[in-house]
């Protein structure tokens, strides 16, 4: 397997936000607090890589041999809650400005982490490739969130129709980005 192609595929072409629609719950908050959103997305890179690794190991070496694949959702949710809780604890010590109380629900409830783990399991990537996929998918997510928050900045100076202000125009922007990202696939082929 070509890792460069795999990385581009994970981060851009099948971007978790734009083609799987994961991690869109912070959308209404994007414009409000840029720093918080970006630190949150950055923290997600760590949680996502960690969760992909742990969930991959648990799925492959415990759930599949024990024939308990049905329990995967509950197990993954517990792992992700633990991973993001741990990160919130660490962040509280390191960065005083990021209120852990705020970061925790954003991270825990964020569908991106669970979704990515589920994609890894569904596509049977295995532990190592799965962890790499998780990391690259998180990087792709960070790129999209950073771009969307800059677009939101620009939108302040443009005459957006009243009913589209707020989330709807961001969704239109995301749709246009999805078209652009889809084009990368053609470049590769």
């Amino acid at each position: 397997m070509n890792y460069v192609v795999f990385a581009v595929e994970a981060a851009l072409i099948s971007n978790i936000a734009l083609s799987y629609f994961l991690g869109l719950s912070p959308f209404p908050e994007i414009g409000k607090d840029k720093k918080q959103t970006c630190i949150g997305a950055l923290a997600m890179v760590i949680v996502m890589t960690l969760s992909s690794l742990i969930c991959g190991v648990i799925y492959r070496y415990i759930l599949v041999p024990a024939n308990a694949v049905q329990a995967k959702t509950v197990v993954f949710v517990v792992v992700i809650l633990a991973a993001s809780g741990l990160l919130a604890l660490l962040l509280r010590k390191r960065a005083g400005e990021l209120e852990s109380g705020k970061a925790f629900p954003v991270l825990a409830v964020n569908t991106a982490v669970l979704g990515t783990v589920l994609v890894i399991v569904q596509n049977d990537y295995g532990v190592l490739n799965g962890t790499f996929y998780g990391f690259m998918a998180a990087v792709g997510y960070l790129i999209v969130i950073a771009m969307l928050s800059s677009i939101d900045d620009e939108l302040k100076y443009s005459d957006v129709p009243k009913s589209f202000r707020g989330v709807p125009i961001l969704l239109v922007a995301a749709g246009l980005m999805a078209i652009a990202f889809h084009g990368i696939e053609v470049l590769g082929g």
Partner: peptide
């Protein structure tokens, strides 16, 4: 039926709800 259409459809429906609410 692809990803961009999903974004556009939800955006326009949400905008329509906005108009109604206003």
């Amino acid at each position: 039926s692809m990803a961009p259409g999903a974004f556009f459809t939800v955006a326009f429906l949400a905008a329509a709800m906005n108009v109604k609410a206003r």
